[in-house]
Amino acid sequence: MLGSGIIKGLAVTAKNFVGSFHDPERLPTVEYPEKRLTLPEAYRSFPFLVFDGENAIDGLRCVACKMCENECPPQCIYIIPERDEKGRPVKKPKVFDIDLSVCMGCQICVEVCPFDSIKMDQVFEVAATNRFEGLIAHREMLAKSNTYYHQIRPTEAAEVDTRLAEEKRLAEEKAKAAAAAKAAAAAKAAAAPKPVATTAPASATAPAAAPASPAKPAVAAPSPSPSSSSSAAAPMAAAPKPPATTP
C-alpha cells in the first residue's frame, strides 16, 4: 500500500516519543550546566603541569628540557629555563606558556615528557572574551598539584607515582654506588702521585651542574639524602636520552 512505509516510519517516531517518557535509553539529554556527564578517566582537554608538595612553582616537576616544545605539532608551547644569578641554567622553567588558542590536545607533549611533569587536564570550560591575554596559559595557571592529578586520573597518577618512586630509589642506589666509587677513586688518587681526572659516574649522575662547573667532586657527588636537587635529577638518570631534534 502506498504510504505504508511512511506510516511505519511514523510508528517508530511515535514509539520513541512515548518511550522518551519512561525509557532513559530514548531520552539521553544531559542538562548540562546543572548536570554533567561523568568524564572518563582518559578524557583530555589541555595540558597542565604537575607539581609536588605545597609550593606550585618550586614543586614543579618540569625541568625545562624543552622536549615538549620541540615535539609539539602546532608549536604552542614556549619555555624559557630559569637561570641562577651566575647565568647558569637551573632546571626550572622561568616562562612556560601554552597558547590554548592553538593547542589541539593531541597529547604528544605528555608522551614525550620523560619527567611525568606535563599531563592532560580535563577542564574544557575555558571560553574567554579576549584571545590575546585570555587564552595564554602561564606557568602559574598551568601548575596544578599532584593531588589534583590523582583526582582526575587516579589510575594513571598512581602508576606515575610508583614509577617515579622506583626511579628515585634506583637513582639513589646508583648515586650511593657512585659516591662509593668516587670515594675509592679519591682514596686511590690520594695514594697515587698524580691526581686522576674525575670519574665518569659522577658526571653521569649529576648532569645539571656538569656543563657549567666542571668537576668539583664535593659538589658533584650527590648526597644520599633526597634533597630537592637530587630528586629532580633522579628521573633524568633513568630517562631516555633527549632526542637530537633540530628542525
Binding site: 582537554s45 593547542c103 574544557f124
Partner: peptide
Amino acid sequence: DIYIPGCPPRPEALLN
C-alpha cells in the same frame, strides 16, 4: 564576542 578553545571543543564547551 566569545572565543572557545579546544580542538574541537566538546559540545558542553560550546554550551558554556
